[in-house]
Write a protein that binds this DNA or RNA. Structure first.
Length: 463
RNA sequence: GUGGUUGUAGCUCAGUUGGUUAGAGCAUCAGAUUGUGAUUCUGAGGGUCGUGGGUUCGAGCCCCAUCAUCCACCCCA
């Protein structure tokens, strides 16, 4: 058979992997700086844990796992019967009862619900693991991709919302990616739905609004008409989505539209709170990256307060991060009163952005430091002994396995980006010396073999 | 789920209105080169042209199907 990969999945070779790890390490170190603890959950969850949490579209994109043992002849009749339900678009636990995780937030909520008694509240966890979605792949979209989440559960304090915004700024500053961190509050969107009398179909409203920068105001209005909104309400919505100015100007202007409703008032207060903290602590530069955007909606229907979305500047790419506050996440699992707020980094898209903008540091592909050349049986034995001495002292090195022509060994070294070559031939064996060659400069010197370690220790001080 | 793009050597791609034995560059291997490389020169290997059907005297090229790919929409990281 011809080997191939499932659609939307990838192998990662050394170069790619080192770069991915660089991003992950950066994110991880910032998470830990803010006091988050690591968590990992299984790749698969019970299907019923996931179903209904991501909306109708989301449910369709969950990868389901076929039950084992369906070929058992005793169960044949039953399996055939139950399969009818699958064909009708319904889930059936006799056919499939497990699924690959779709995101990290719901597994986290499940974990919280199962362990709420044992955990120190507020509980701050981070989780960096792959997730799977049965989407059609395209630019910046994969079927298996890595999410890096940080959530704070068990507090209504908006300081936690502020911290998460800071984490976004902090991480992307370290990665040298220029970004736009968009903020909004679901309560303001609820208020708009209330004021315009579209409470029953808040989803249609937010979806239409969310498309503004993509399809333009005219098309958005057309969509609103088709949803059945009146002329008056549409012009109100138009006023809403065209609000501009600085962040504080935007908050003033929104007051006139939704300020009279309870929900609107609360949403504005919350955003004001966050801005006051952020304006107090952020540098002038960083303040520019925070942008209130009332058209930001976000699809996941469990968000209730703050919502975040991060987009990279100077590059065509979907959002590279998103999140929000959910005031009742574990309620679905029988544990009430557990508020939380979380963010997610999309590693794969961050990688694509950095690749496109050439933002990876040069020295990221560090590898073996020394290659010991193989010049024969006796010589390689001596080289091997010296090499082990280097390895005991944490110097990364390799011995070329075959006694091949020197140019082949040199080529191997340059391909692997190895900094130094150590050459021990019959002459050196006799003299108890070795030749150390700086492969980048092409310069070499002969030193006594018992001083080799000292030589490299001295060199490593330069790095 | 809907629409489109592309599929030829390990990689990047040429291939004329359908016509002899399907090409190039890079990479690989061997030699010139004996213990000092990334230059040069010479040579070699490597392809059922994504797969399966069809039209034709004849198909890499035309038709149908299918798979894969990338992109857009939907939705999303």
């Amino acid at each position: 058979m011809k080997p191939s990969l499932p659609q939307g999945t990838r192998d990662f070779a050394a170069d790619t992997l080192r770069r991915r790890r660089y991003i992950i390490e950066t994110i991880k170190s910032v998470f830990e700086l803010y006091g988050f603890e690591p968590l990992e959950t299984p790749s698969m969850e019970n299907l019923e844990t996931l179903m209904g949490k991501y909306g109708d579209e989301g449910d369709k994109l969950i990868f389901k796992i076929l039950n084992n043992g369906l070929d058992n002849p005793v169960k044949r009749e039953n399996a055939l019967l139950n399969f009818e339900q699958i064909l009708a678009g319904k889930n059936n636990k006799y056919i499939t009862e497990r699924a690959l995780r779709y995101d990290l937030t719901i597994p986290f909520a499940r974990y919280m619900a199962m362990n709420s008694g044992k955990l120190t509240i507020p509980f701050k966890r981070y989780q960096i693991q792959p997730v799977w979605r049965a989407d059609r792949p395209q630019k910046g979209r994969y079927r298996e991709f890595m999410q890096c989440d940080a959530d704070i559960a068990g507090t209504y304090s908006l300081i936690s919302d502020v911290e998460l915004a800071e984490i976004y700024i902090d991480v992307f500053k370290r990665l040298k990616i220029e970004v736009d961190v968009k903020l909004n509050n679901r309560k303001i969107l609820f208020a708009l739905a209330e004021v315009t009398g579209s409470v029953t179909d808040i989803n249609a409203l937010t979806i239409a609004i969310d498309k503004l920068d993509k399809i333009g105001i005219k098309k958005v209005k057309e969509e609103l008409v088709s949803v059945g909104l009146s002329e008056n309400n549409i012009s109100l919505i138009e006023k809403y989505i065209t609000i501009d100015g600085t962040n504080s100007e935007k908050l003033e202007k929104i007051e006139a539209i939704v300020g009279k409703t309870e929900s609107g008032k609360k949403g504005i207060e919350e955003l004001q709170f966050m801005l006051s903290y952020l304006n107090n602590s952020l540098s002038e530069d960083s303040k520019q990256t925070i942008n209130i955007d009332f058209t930001l909606a976000r699809g996941l229907n469990y968000y209730t307060g703050t919502i975040y979305e991060v987009k990279a500047k100077n590059v065509e790419m979907g959002s590279i991060g998103g999140g929000g506050r959910y005031d009742d996440l574990t309620g679905l699992f029988g544990v009430p009163d557990m508020p939380g707020v979380g963010i997610s980094f999309g590693l794969d898209r961050i990688y694509d952005v950095m690749e496109e903008l050439n933002l990876f540091p040069e020295n990221i592909n560090q590898t073996t430091e020394i290659l010991f050349f193989n010049l024969g049986e006796k010589e390689s034995k001596q080289a091997y002994k010296l090499m082990q001495e280097m390895r005991l002292n944490n110097i990364s090195c390799e011995l070329f396995y075959e006694n091949s022509k020197l140019d082949k060994q040199f080529k191997y070294a340059s391909k692997k980006n190895i900094a130094y070559g150590v050459i021990i031939g019959s002459k050196e064996m006799e003299e108890k010396t070795c030749v150390v060659k700086d492969l980048a400069k092409g310069e070499q010197e002969t030193i006594p073999e018992n001083e080799l370690l000292k030589y490299f220790n001295k060199l490593s001080l330069r790095f």
